Simulated scan of single mutants.
Amino acid sequence: MDPTQGDPTARALREAGERRDWRAVRDLLVPVTDPDDHAFYVSAVADVTGVQEWIGEWIDAEPRSTLPVLVRGAHAVYWAWEARGGGRASQTRQEQFKEFFRRLKLAENCLDEVADRDPDDTTARTFLVTAARGRQVDRDEAQRRFDDVVARHPWHRIAHEQMLQYRCHKWFGSHEEMFDFARTAVAKAPAGSPLGQLVPAAHLERWLDLPSGEDAAYLDDDAVRAELNAAADTSVRHPGYQARPGWATVHNSFAMAFAMSGDLRSAAGQFEVIGDLVTASPWQYLNGRDPGAPFTAWRRKAMAAQG
């Protein structure tokens, strides 16, 4: 899998981060003004291993800039989840939880500083929405963080994805809340918005929470297929849709939901757009160690069905 999703700027950012070249990271990030693009590109470098070992040099060199503090805070969110690991709470050691919370506190301190110093920022505020789950903040605080983002950019894709997760039954919400959030956001979004992805994401979360047997039956339903197609028609299949950096995640969500609902022709349409740009989310729900395996298996079925 390509963590940059084939994006040349994201690839350059990761390469600069890996060689600890903060000047190159700065020069690549400074020109980015679109809030969605900015969050995606900050994520690209923040997810590089070892950022915490060199980011202090950038902060010391440019103390007036919020950008290095933002990268440090965003990286600390990824760094925290790395410490926790991917297991369930019952499978996670107390030492892991302790380090998880320590790193999340560092993340929030940095992100809060950026938000205080830059009233127009959306990226730090988006990462605070992500951190809300790990820090187990209450519902009012999580909503406040999300509102801080959408007050500045109403259709912020990553902020919506992260708030959907907070409202999932497996975190701090319920299936009803999750679907209400997804459907309301999609209904309000402009035609062609990538937020249509929230609908397949919600259905996959519901599927994931069901026992074996009931899960397949849930997706194999005419009403589910109809809602997935309606969401695609107003987003990724709408003439006004434009693929922005990070677009592959949106199409992979639709592809998996269509495939597992039995609508293989609609799935094939998404696989044609995706090419080989498989993303961990949501295919990791089928195979956490190798998300590419279910992706290729379902793509083969979908293409065969299309003929």
Rank of each mutant, 00 (worst) to 15 (best):
D290Q: 05
L277F: 11
R93Q: 07
A217P: 02
F295Q: 01
D276H: 09
R139S: 05
A132S: 15
D47P: 02
F179W: 07
V224A: 09
D138H: 12
S266G: 15
A76M: 13
K301T: 05
I59F: 03
L29V: 04
H238L: 10
V150A: 03
S266A: 15
R64W: 08
R265T: 13
E113R: 09
D34I: 12
T184M: 05
T4Y: 01
W207E: 08
R289Q: 11
A267K: 01
T234I: 14
V48L: 11
L106T: 15
A80T: 06
D233Y: 03
H251A: 08
A185F: 07
G56D: 15
A12H: 03
L198P: 08
V236L: 09
A39T: 15
H175G: 02
L198C: 10
A232Q: 09
Y285N: 02
L195G: 14
R93K: 11
D220R: 14
K98H: 03
G292R: 13
I158M: 10
Y41K: 04
Y78N: 02
E205D: 10
E15T: 06
A76H: 08
A304Y: 05
D37L: 06
L286C: 15
Q136M: 13
I158D: 12
D120M: 07
M163N: 08
A267E: 04
P245D: 00
L195I: 12
V30R: 08
S253N: 11
E177K: 04
R237E: 05
Q197R: 12
A305M: 11
E53D: 15
M256I: 03
Q284K: 13
E176H: 01
E57V: 12
D121E: 14
D118M: 03
T123A: 11
F172C: 01
Q5K: 02
D215H: 13
W283E: 04
P31F: 12
G17P: 06
D118H: 06
G240V: 04
Q96K: 06
L286K: 09
A255I: 10
A268Y: 10
G240C: 09
A304V: 08
E272S: 13
P194I: 08
D215R: 13
R206T: 07
L228C: 08
P245M: 02
E57R: 12
V48W: 04
V45N: 05
A223S: 14
W247M: 03
G192W: 11
A83W: 09
D148R: 07
Y41M: 02
N252S: 09
R88Y: 08
S235M: 09
R157K: 09
E99Q: 10
W81A: 07
V186T: 06
A226T: 14
A142I: 06
S235L: 04
G86R: 11
E99K: 12
R117C: 02
F172T: 00
Q242H: 06
G196K: 07
N287S: 14
W81C: 02
D120C: 05
E15K: 04
L277H: 10
D112H: 09
A12T: 07
A267D: 00
H175K: 07
W298Y: 12
Q270Y: 02
R167K: 14
R102Y: 13
D263V: 05
S212D: 03
T33Q: 15
T4P: 00
S65R: 15
R20P: 01
E227G: 00
A159C: 13
A305Q: 11
A231N: 12
R145P: 03
L204C: 07
I274L: 12
R157M: 08
Y41V: 01
I55S: 01
